[in-house]
Write a protein that binds this DNA or RNA. Structure first.
Length: 171
DNA sequence: ACAAAGATCCGT
DNA sequence: CGGATCTTTGTA
């Protein structure tokens, strides 16, 4: 039986957590039924204040504060006025890192999956360790994957834009 | 108080 | 390739 991933999994460096999230099972419960139970297939790592592609590169603000929380919390924000982005906060408290969940089995696209799973601003700051409506279970599966540079982060410049911190499960 | 940009998606 | 759409952030 699958077990919910716990604190020790999330409090590691984002570059370790991101690839380890591939193949794990994201569970979403809405009105007492599981409207989502999907394997994670695509993620991106955002690594702290030094990473110019990470929102936390601006330091602590009202928006980025949750990324400084202990690993295992959620960072959810609206982009382009329309799409909610689902991120898993990683690392110990006061280190601002997060993993953007970009794709699930059967639901590709970070904006599409939050629409399908009815995830919005109310999930910002929620804990994957204690929530009764969203969490991640250890599937025991370690799929083969490929790394590429992150999507749509040209604004971060050549150095940070070139980091191969996007992880995609192979076909 | 205002302007600008943005970790996207969809249709042309 | 451009429009939709609105929050966050910086600047005045």
């Amino acid at each position: 039986m699958a077990k919910r991933l716990e604190t020790d999994f999330y409090t590691r460096d984002v570059l370790e957590v991101a690839p380890d999230l591939l193949g794990q099972t994201l569970i979403r419960v809405f009105e007492n039924s599981r409207i989502g139970q999907y394997a994670i297939t695509e993620v991106e790592a955002y690594r702290g204040e030094e990473d110019l592609a990470c929102h936390a590169s601006k330091g602590r603000t009202a928006r980025t504060e949750v990324m400084y929380a202990e690993g295992g919390h959620l960072y959810v924000y609206l982009i382009y006025g329309m799409y909610w982005m689902l991120n898993v906060v990683t690392a110990p408290k006061d280190i601002s890192q997060a993993v953007l969940i970009r794709g699930l089995k059967e639901i590709t696209g970070p904006g599409r999956l939050t629409r399908e799973l009815k995830i919005d601003k109310s999930f910002n700051g929620e804990s994957l360790l204690t929530s009764d409506r969203i969490w991640i279970e250890d599937s025991g599966i370690k799929p083969a994957y490929t790394t590429t540079s992150r999507i749509n982060v040209e604004y971060a410049g050549v150095v940070w834009g070139a980091k191969e911190w996007r992880y995609v499960v192979n076909d």
